[in-house]
Design a protein around this nucleic acid. Structure first.
Length: 305
DNA sequence: TCACCCAGTATCATAAGCAA
DNA sequence: TTGCTTATGATACTGGGTGA
């Protein structure tokens, strides 16, 4: 049987107080017990450890060599317990050294991550971030044990054990190079339908649904959509768009990120298409976790509807 | 599965005695 | 005299058994 099981851990508080005050009476006073009760507690400690622990000498209760040997580990353990109990409802971003793991696709990392990293540098300098990309099935398996703290994106297959909150909404736009020969000020429907397109389908997210909507739109007009380039990563796309006549349909937040890196223009689509919604997902186990709550609040405040 | 009862055990306080 | 230990009784807690 585990020896610790037979020890009343409250007795360690008596041990700790005895070390500090060197008196059974003052220990009793400090702990709100009577002196005999404290003496009895000391007797149980002595019985458990097989050592007197404290002996009377020069008018005070002096620790034995065994008591001195146990002093540091016991005080350290009690300190950790106190911190675990007292701090469990509180998360201090300024002093925390926690690492958050956030699952988001490549677009999320491009759009959301820069703002989050900048915010963290200001208000949570010791907090580390790990951005990862994985399928929603893998993310759902990793979230209950804390390997993934938060998932950012749009998913329809998260189970009942998960919460979700809308982080932001956006709309789809078209991106084309400046000086595109078929576009003069506005993107017309004939120009859009006749252009060659880039299809952006990252491994994680709901972009396949967008592709289906676009295919439906083209079919409605009796035109076959020509996809000249299909990519899963947007890294080199601004450069490609700026040097070709290809058009790409993407969320507006991503389109504006493209504008910062290449001479491209953003156009409203010449047809109606449902808006895009970005959610954050977390496991029920971390619903009341102060650190996770703080993380969610950062995303919600940085990317308002 | 839950509520209740009961016996055994642990803990605490009071009182008294003992040692430095 | 002060402070610690021990004996004793009261109370609370725990776990097993039983019945609804």
């Amino acid at each position: 049987m585990n020896k610790l099981y037979s020890l009343d851990l409250n007795l360690l508080l008596v041990f700790d107080a005895m070390l500090r005050v060197g008196s059974v009476s003052r220990t009793a006073e400090e702990m709100g017990l009577t002196q005999p009760s404290t003496s009895n507690a000391l007797a149980r400690l002595r019985n458990f450890f097989g050592d007197p622990l404290f002996v009377r000498s020069d008018g005070a209760m002096r620790p034995t060599p065994l008591a001195l040997q146990m002093a540091e580990p016991v005080q350290e353990a009690l300190g950790q317990l106190r911190r675990a109990i007292e701090d469990k409802r509180y998360f201090d971003p300024m002093t925390s050294c926690r690492r958050f793991s956030i699952c988001m696709n490549e677009m999320g990392q491009r759009v959301f991550l820069p703002k989050i990293v900048t915010r963290f540098a200001e208000i949570a300098p010791g907090v580390d971030l790990e951005a990862m990309e994985m399928t929603s099935q893998l993310a759902q398996a990793a979230m209950p044990n804390g390997d993934v703290d938060l998932v950012i994106g749009y998913f329809s297959d998260f189970g009942p054990s998960f919460f979700r909150q809308r982080v932001t909404t956006g709309h789809y736009v078209a991106v084309a190079r400046k000086g595109h020969p078929q576009i003069d000020g506005i993107l017309t429907l004939p120009a859009y339908l006749s252009a060659s397109h880039i299809s952006y389908v990252p491994a994680l997210g709901n972009h396949a649904a967008l592709e289906a909507l676009l295919a439906e739109e083209f079919m409605k007009h009796g035109v076959r959509r020509r996809v000249a380039l299909r990519v899963a990563n947007s890294l080199g796309i601004p450069k490609i768009i700026s040097s070709t006549d290809l058009i790409m349909t993407v969320p507006s937040v991503l389109a504006h990120a493209f504008c910062e890196t290449a001479p491209v223009q953003v156009f409203d689509l010449p047809f109606d298409i449902p808006h895009i919604e970005i959610f954050q997902y977390w496991h029920a186990r971390y619903h009341h976790d102060p650190a996770n709550q703080w993380l969610r609040a950062q995303f919600k405040s940085l990317f308002p509807d």
